[in-house]
Simulated scan of single mutants.
Amino acid sequence: MQNFAFLTALRPVLHYGLHFAAPGLLAYIFFRDRWQKAWLIMIATMLVDADHLLAKPIFDPMRCSVGFHPLHSYYAVGVYVVLLFFPKTRILGVGLLFHMLTDFEDCQWIGLVG
Score class of each variant (00 low, 15 high):
65 S>E: 15
99 H>S: 07
37 K>S: 12
52 H>D: 02
34 R>A: 11
2 Q>L: 14
4 F>N: 08
44 A>N: 11
88 K>W: 14
104 F>C: 05
82 V>G: 06
8 T>R: 13
110 I>Y: 04
22 A>T: 15
24 G>R: 03
51 D>T: 12
109 W>Q: 00
82 V>D: 07
33 D>Q: 15
74 Y>D: 09
56 K>F: 15
73 S>P: 08
51 D>F: 09
65 S>H: 10
4 F>S: 13
5 A>T: 13
37 K>Q: 13
27 A>V: 02
98 F>E: 10
79 V>K: 09
40 L>K: 05
61 P>C: 11
34 R>N: 13
33 D>E: 13
109 W>P: 00
77 V>H: 09
34 R>P: 03
18 L>C: 12
60 D>S: 09
57 P>N: 10
17 G>V: 00
103 D>T: 09
101 L>I: 12
81 V>T: 02
11 R>Q: 07
7 L>Q: 05
78 G>T: 01
16 Y>V: 06
38 A>L: 11
69 H>T: 08
31 F>P: 06
100 M>W: 10
93 G>R: 12
21 A>H: 03
20 F>A: 10
110 I>C: 04
20 F>I: 12
13 V>C: 14
84 L>S: 09
42 M>D: 04
69 H>D: 07
44 A>S: 14
107 C>F: 00
30 F>L: 10
90 R>P: 01
